[in-house]
Simulated assay, not measured.
Amino acid sequence: MFSKKKNTKIDVEQHELVENAQKRIAQKKKLYTHFVVFLIGSVFLILINKILKYGQEYDWFIWAITFWAFLFALHIFNVFITNRFMGKEWERSQREKLIRKQQERINEMQKDLDTQQPLEIEPKKKLY
Rank of each mutant, 00 (worst) to 15 (best):
I10W: 05
K101A: 01
V12F: 11
G41C: 10
H15V: 08
R105M: 09
A69S: 15
K5E: 10
N78A: 12
I10N: 09
E96G: 02
K28R: 06
I106E: 02
L127M: 06
V43F: 13
Q102F: 01
Y32R: 14
T82Q: 08
T115Q: 11
P118D: 01
F38P: 03
F61K: 03
R84D: 13
K23E: 15
F72D: 05
F70W: 09
F38N: 02
F67M: 05
G87K: 03
Q116W: 14
I65C: 00
F77E: 01
K9V: 08
I10T: 08
K88D: 01
L52P: 00
N7H: 12
P118H: 04
F35P: 00
F35Q: 12
Y58P: 00
V43G: 11
T66V: 15
E104V: 04
D114M: 07
E16F: 13
D114A: 13
F2W: 07
T8H: 13
S42G: 15
I81H: 06
G87Q: 04
T115H: 05
Q27E: 12
T33R: 06
T115P: 02
F77H: 07
T82R: 11
W60E: 00
G87H: 05
K5W: 07
I121D: 00
F77P: 02
K29M: 00
M1D: 01
L39P: 06
N20Q: 14
M109V: 08
D114L: 08
L98Y: 01
Q94M: 10
L119T: 12
M86G: 03
F77Q: 04
F70Q: 03
I40M: 12
L17P: 04
N78K: 12
K5A: 08
K23F: 15
Y128T: 14
I81N: 04
Y128K: 14
L31M: 12
Y58R: 04
T33Y: 05
V12I: 15
K124P: 00
F35C: 10
K50W: 05
F80M: 09
V37P: 04
W68F: 10
D59L: 09
M86L: 11
T115C: 02
M86R: 15
F85W: 12
W68H: 09
W60H: 00
I25F: 07
F80T: 10
L17E: 11
Y32G: 14
W68R: 07
P123I: 02
N78Y: 09
R95S: 00
F72H: 11
I65L: 03
H75Y: 12
N7Q: 14
F70V: 15
K50Q: 11
V43K: 10
L127I: 08
F72V: 08
R105L: 07
V18G: 01
F44N: 01
V18F: 07
T8F: 14
F44I: 12
E96M: 10
A73N: 00
E108P: 02
K28N: 07
S42M: 04
N107D: 07
K4A: 10
A73Y: 08
A64N: 11
